[in-house]
Amino acid sequence: MIGMMKGLGVTLKTLGTRKSTYKYPDEPIVMPDRFRGIQHFDPDKCIVCFQCARICPTQCITMSGKPNPDPEKKGRVIDTYDINFEICILCDLCTEVCPTEAIVMTNNFELAAYSRDELFKDRVWLQENNTNVRKDNNNIGAPKGGAK
């Protein structure tokens, strides 16, 4: 009986304590800076090195480059860049290896959609996803000496 009484005491005490419910849909949850949300892609910074596509554990990044339209400049520029969020696991490895921080994480995480097709995000969408971009993109695990 004593054990039961103690339990009743605990629940009664909890009755008046502060509640820990988030007001989520009403108030957005502020994620810490390091939060790994949906990627933001900056095509101007991309050097088409394919590192992100290669490191991706689920092969969700497809990209292609084209010759630089400005004949003065060498190298290639990005043509298409798609991330399939059906299989992306937001593991942060693509941003970890990117030598120019062309692909970075944001703190946005709302991806729910009515159709699977909508989860296939292209270059334009990723570029426009430019709010709450992560400030600290600590590339500590990245291979040293990548393209500068």
Binding site: F35, M105, G141
Partner: peptide, 24 residues
């Protein structure tokens, strides 16, 4: 954990030879 490595469940925090993030 979320503050440390940016995820609440699937942390992907450790790397061969160390950890990805220092403590904030």
């Amino acid at each position: 954990f979320n503050e440390l490595c940016g995820a609440r469940l699937t942390y992907n925090y450790m790397r061969v030879g160390g950890v990805k993030w220092d403590a904030p």
